[in-house]
Simulated scan of single mutants.
Amino acid sequence: MKKLLIPLIAASFIFVTPLNAEEYVIDTKGAHAFIQFRIKHLGYSWLLGRFNEFSGSFSYDEKNPQAAKISVDIKPASVDSNHGERDKHLRDEDFLYVDKYPKASFVSTSFTEKGDGKAELKGDLTLRGVTKPVVIAVEHIGHGKDPWGGYRRGFFGTTEIALADFGIPFDLGPASKTVQLELSVEGIRQ
């Protein structure tokens, strides 16, 4: 019996060994994370905005960065372009249609280091009930202890999506077919 128990106990340690990936919660409560967008207005200027309400988490292991994962939930009704009437229009069926689609999300599928703090993050973006793959160019900003006794890690990412790919029917003209997204993510290690 002893001969059987020793290998079983040893095997159990193999399966319960903690992973090296660090788990982080995106710091939206402290306003240290942002999802911003810009789109050309009729081709004459840039219209800027952001989503004020979102949450998420990510994992990252410096020894195994390709195993990094991120998941973010966004409340499209929190869209803020610094103009109340325009924001009402962005929330209606011409754009985000928040009454029918109150949630948007991003879930990563892969993370590839490119060197010099740069990486490529692939994942599925769900917006207006449509899920499409997107590629985000990522820059690792930094990591370390914070003044409150915690540990933080931050990334910045950019991508561009076509409005039509997500079923957004409103035509803003030929110069406004795509929207650029900028994502600033600071996570608190758990």
Score class of each variant (00 low, 15 high):
residue 142 G to C: 07
residue 90 L to D: 00
residue 163 L to P: 00
residue 180 Q to M: 04
residue 26 I to C: 03
residue 44 Y to E: 04
residue 88 K to D: 11
residue 187 G to R: 00
residue 160 E to D: 07
residue 114 K to Q: 13
residue 31 A to G: 11
residue 162 A to E: 14
residue 56 G to T: 07
residue 60 Y to Q: 00
residue 36 Q to V: 11
residue 6 I to P: 03
residue 15 F to A: 12
residue 107 V to A: 08
residue 49 G to V: 01
residue 112 T to W: 01
residue 153 R to Y: 10
residue 149 G to C: 09
residue 144 G to Y: 03
residue 26 I to A: 01
residue 152 R to Q: 09
residue 165 D to V: 07
residue 121 L to V: 09
residue 136 I to D: 04
residue 164 A to K: 15
residue 47 L to M: 12
residue 161 I to D: 08
residue 166 F to H: 03
residue 25 V to I: 15
residue 44 Y to N: 09
residue 47 L to V: 13
residue 129 G to H: 08
residue 156 F to Y: 15
residue 87 D to E: 02
residue 144 G to A: 09
residue 44 Y to A: 10
residue 109 T to W: 05
residue 147 P to I: 08
residue 10 A to G: 13
residue 167 G to P: 06
residue 97 Y to M: 08
residue 111 F to L: 00
residue 103 K to E: 15
residue 36 Q to E: 15
residue 163 L to W: 12
residue 18 P to K: 00
residue 120 E to Y: 01
residue 14 I to W: 14
residue 79 V to L: 03
residue 25 V to D: 14
residue 173 G to C: 05
residue 27 D to M: 05
residue 182 E to V: 07
residue 160 E to P: 01
residue 157 G to Y: 01
residue 53 E to R: 12
residue 149 G to Y: 05
residue 20 N to M: 15
residue 176 S to F: 09
residue 122 K to F: 03
residue 70 I to N: 01
residue 25 V to G: 09
residue 128 R to S: 03
residue 159 T to M: 12
residue 23 E to V: 13
residue 8 L to S: 02
residue 99 D to P: 00
residue 180 Q to S: 10
residue 95 F to A: 04
residue 89 H to L: 11
residue 185 V to C: 05
residue 22 E to P: 02
residue 137 A to W: 02
residue 63 K to I: 04
residue 146 D to L: 02
residue 30 G to I: 06
residue 54 F to S: 02
residue 146 D to V: 02
residue 50 R to P: 02
residue 177 K to S: 04
residue 97 Y to Q: 11
residue 69 K to L: 07
